[in-house]
Design a protein around this nucleic acid. Structure first.
Lengths: 131, 131
DNA sequence: CGGCATCCCGAGGGATACTG
DNA sequence: CAGTATCCCTCGGGATGCCG
């Protein structure tokens, strides 16, 4: 729980607090992947779509709009033919991506341990079904 | 992208990589809130339910099971009457919660800036509908 | 190229009732 | 207290087609 200037305290554990919705939009697979990718520099729409395997054009567009609305990223349109659109982090966004990258790396670094935990968990479940 | 011992590289940007699913389960509102709450110490089910305002019993149970399966948390059952169940972080989970807490605090700390960005974004949209 | 609009299906998740 | 089970309905999100 963090205090802002002089209103009420912001608290993600309070479901009526606006921070809850912000967290919910950030706690999203595609949002994290997009922000992580943009940390390496500005990227065009289709480039982004290729890099983030499995994302559909619809989900990517939706995600980009949400991230832009919350002020993490910015859209730059070049009047080329055909049109070119580039997305890049804002100053606000740059203060966020370090944490996100750490999370993504953490998952990759600990994948083996996680797999092991899953096997143990699933095995324990199998035992109980006997008789 | 991180290399594990001697197999193929783990990469959350590859949709066929198992890390993608792990990230997806972690990129979840309730998962983040539960892990954040457990960082302060072991908590019982109903206590957790009260602390995380707005979570239903179904979602909390589902979330706890997923977190337990991936090895972040552990369940300790006390044979009291009525029964008591306490959830706590595993060693693996403890290496993860720092990052999560940073994310939650980041949202609270930057809520004012985010609100401002939303207003600007929504205003720009309103202009275009004119005429 | 970078979208938006539409259709449509299946999973996510709320509400409620029951149990060890 | 700490769940499981069921119903039920919304809406997330994929597929497809069209446009500036």
């Amino acid at each position: 729980m963090t205090m802002n200037a002089q209103q009420f305290p912001y608290d993600v554990y309070d479901d009526r607090c606006p921070t809850r919705d912000v967290l919910a939009r950030l706690a999203d697979k595609w949002a994290l992947l997009v922000l992580g990718r943009l940390e390496k520099g500005p990227v065009r729409f289709n480039h982004l779509k290729r890099d983030i395997r499995g994302v559909t054009q619809k989900m990517l567009t939706q995600t980009l709009r949400k991230l832009e609305r919350d002020g993490y990223i910015s859209r730059k349109v070049y009047a080329t033919v055909p049109i070119t659109v580039e997305y890049h982090l804002t100053q606000l966004g740059k203060t966020l991506t370090d944490t996100i990258t750490v999370m993504a790396c953490w998952v990759e670094d600990n994948m083996d341990a996680i797999r092991q935990a899953q096997i143990v968990f699933d095995t324990r479940l199998g035992q109980n079904s006997g008789s």
